[in-house]
């Protein structure tokens, strides 16, 4: 996994609540058996005016000029600013894969859906939860200033570049550690193999019907 330490980038504002994972990456693109290549279809139904197909040449498709990612002022965005319950719905990890493939490595919102939030950390994306007022202020500044950019410092736990004071954020210690170091958590868990085996022995004695069925 790609480590996440510090990130500076243009902020794109997605001003709607309950953005679901069907919206982030529609179902027809889930047929891929790869982890990459989803970027051109990120937010497909919002971004293009026609229906996307897995084998289509996206460069030939009509763009929706009203959608933020099609607007020059948000070109090269690395940070997505969003509203409540971002990432709700399906558990598809294709959603963070699509964000990552597009170049977005940080999503800031007042709240996230649980499974999406968890999936982000497995893919080097940092989801940051802030208070409503802080998110509102960031939306205002993003709309007001062309090229509005922020610096996310995970090590320090601060967002820099907004008006006024730096904004502090917190992330669960284990997830922060894995993200900062780009750690593969399967490897970490396998270091605890003895504990897992010990648990299995105990469990097999208590609930033998769960073993070898």
């Amino acid at each position: 996994m790609q480590a996440f330490t510090q990130l500076t980038g243009v902020v794109a504002p997605l001003d709607r609540a309950n953005v679901d994972t069907d919206m982030i990456i529609p179902k027809q693109f889930l047929k891929s058996i790869k982890r990459s290549g989803f970027g051109p279809n990120l937010f497909d139904e919002l971004r293009y005016l026609d229906e996307g197909q897995p084998d289509a040449d996206n460069s030939q498709r009509p763009l929706n000029p009203d959608f933020i990612l099609n607007q020059a002022r948000y070109a090269g965005t690395r940070i997505l600013l969003a509203r409540d319950n971002f990432g709700c719905g399906s558990s598809r990890e294709h959603a963070p894969w699509a964000l990552m493939d597009f170049g977005i490595r940080c999503v800031i919102a007042p709240s996230f859906a649980d499974i999406f939030y968890n999936n982000c950390f497995k893919n080097g994306i940092l989801p940051i939860t802030l208070l409503d007022d802080d998110v509102d202020a960031l939306f205002e500044q993003t709309f007001a200033t062309e090229g509005f950019a922020l610096t996310i410092d995970l090590e320090a736990g601060f967002i820099k570049g907004a008006k006024g004071n730096d904004i502090a954020f917190s992330v669960d210690a284990f997830r922060r550690h894995c993200l900062l170091n780009g750690l593969d958590d399967i490897g970490l868990t396998l270091e605890q193999s003895d504990f897992i085996k010990h648990y299995e022995q105990k469990r097999q004695a208590q609930t033998p019907w769960l073993f070898g069925a």
């Binding site: 889930l30 047929k31 058996i33 790869k34 982890r35 558990s91 598809r92 990890e93 669960d172 210690a173 284990f174 550690h177 868990t189 605890q192 504990f195 897992i196 648990y199 299995e200 469990r203 769960l210």
Partner: peptide, 29 residues
Amino acid sequence: LVRQQEDGSCLIYIDRHLLHEVTSPQAFE
């Protein structure tokens, strides 16, 4: 609960894992 780490994260044992074709290919890979 297999083990609780000092940072509060827990290792939880899974008894049944169901798989289908959409979310598993990249895991097998």
